[in-house]
């Protein structure tokens, strides 16, 4: 999948949800969490979260800086989407 630059917030959220479905190891089928549910509480391991980070970096063609590599940033669909938006703004 080629890297893309998503500008719209809703597109970012959809892409993030797709990546979590593919790499979050949160069960088969559609992601059954709201945008604000704690992904770690519903079973995302730190191992899986790394795969999610890598997939996000590849898909959005960006690098999460060190200060963003913390649990809070990858805790919910919203927090991940906000972090990506922030990185786009900084570019």
């Amino acid at each position: 999948m080629a890297p893309v630059k998503e500008e719209k917030v809703e597109d970012i959220v959809v892409t993030v949800r797709g990546i979590l479905e593919a790499y979050g190891r949160l069960g088969d089928g559609p992601l059954e969490v709201s945008d604000d549910d704690d992904l770690y509480d519903v079973g995302m391991t730190s191992h899986a979260s790394v795969d999610v980070m890598l997939a996000l970096e590849g898909r959005f063609d960006l690098e999460f800086p060190e200060e963003m590599l913390r649990r809070e940033v990858f805790q919910t669909v919203s927090s991940i989407s906000n972090a990506i938006q922030e990185l786009f703004k900084g570019e």
């Binding site: 730190s46 191992h47 790394v50 795969d51 980070m53 890598l54 970096e57 690098e63 999460f64 800086p65 060190e66 590599l69």
Partner: peptide
Amino acid sequence: ETNASMLLVHKS
């Protein structure tokens, strides 16, 4: 194995 995976995204 866990560390190896984390080092793929860890920058410092």
